[in-house]
């Protein structure tokens, strides 16, 4: 039994967790939005999770506060119920990263020796932070970080790149000047919900728009990724381009979450493990 505790809106992450569990032969319960749960009465994350841990075998939590998943994991520890971070504020989104990695490997055939461009809101973009963190474990990645100065990658993420074997980065403002050098372009949405000021959001939201004209300067085999939802940062005319990989990410999202849930529940998937497993270069 999976419990999805989604304190923030979600389409792909929640539905892929729930359909994934049902496809594995299990069931799913939970809430989408806090209005119909005791969270609306002021119940803490820890108390909510301790309660749900009495009903479910695994919990997926999304919360607007950074670090909420860690609080949840510790609260469920006594019950022995694993907690999966389905996105904690502008901090991390590790299961999206699994979908991203699967898609990059499908498109590029490898997870190392790549030039990866990340474009848009790199400060509050939790998928960006998780993807950089994880790609650094594989090594030999050059990150091209494209953002306005106000939305640059946090220092703790840059420190992770500095520590990683063979990894490097450059921070630029102009996408057009670097798009031709990229193996992967990871576009992100400027997230209205992370701004305290509406004016600041409006000022920054349209900084980058990828359309067919801009894509013409990219390599013919570059992969365009986006965690979705998009607003207008990728024009719909890009969807038909073979380089568009963002709906592949959606499909992969369910598969990797199925694999993750099976793994944390110690319930091996039939056929999984037959393929030669790849291990990050930096991992022992």
């Amino acid at each position: 039994m999976l419990a999805t505790l989604f304190y923030e809106p979600s389409t792909r992450t929640r539905l892929s967790f729930e359909t994934g569990m049902i496809r594995l032969g299990g069931n799913a319960v939970g809430f989408a939005g806090t209005g119909q749960s005791s969270v609306s009465k002021g119940e803490s994350i820890a108390d909510t999770v301790r309660t749900v841990a009495a009903y479910a075998d695994v919990i997926a939590i999304r919360h607007p506060k950074e670090g909420a998943a860690l609080v949840a994991a510790r609260a469920a520890e006594r019950a022995g119920v694993p907690v999966i971070n389905a996105g904690d504020g502008g901090h991390m989104h590790p299961t999206q990263t699994l979908a991203d990695l699967a898609t990059i490997r499908q498109r590029c055939g490898r997870l190392t020796d790549l030039t990866v461009g990340l474009c848009g809101d790199l400060m509050f973009g939790r998928t960006v932070h998780s993807l950089i963190e994880t790609l650094c474990r594989w090594g030999n990645i050059h990150f091209v970080l494209v953002s306005p100065p106000e939305l640059r990658v946090p220092q703790y993420v840059l420190d992770r790149i500095d520590k990683a074997s063979g990894c490097s980065y450059e921070q630029v403002r102009d996408l057009a000047g670097v798009i031709g050098s990229l193996d992967v372009l990871y576009m992100t949405r400027v997230q209205k919900e992370r701004f305290f000021s509406e004016d600041e959001y409006v000022r920054l939201r349209d900084t980058y728009v990828l359309d067919r004209a801009r894509l013409a300067a990219a390599r013919p085999d570059m992969a365009v990724l986006h965690p979705l939802p998009r607003v207008n940062e990728i024009a719909t005319d890009v969807d038909a381009d073979p380089r568009a990989a963002y709906f592949d990410q959606v499909a992969n999202g369910m598969l990797v979450r199925m694999a993750l849930m099976a793994a944390v529940l110690d319930d091996p998937l039939p056929g999984y493990g037959d393929e030669k497993r790849q291990t990050p270069a930096g991992e022992q």
Binding site: E66, G67, A68, G89
Partner: peptide, 12 residues
């Protein structure tokens, strides 16, 4: 950090 869970979760 106003977005950190320590600002809202009791007893942390």
């Amino acid at each position: 950090n106003p977005r950190c869970v320590t600002g809202s979760e009791r007893g942390l």
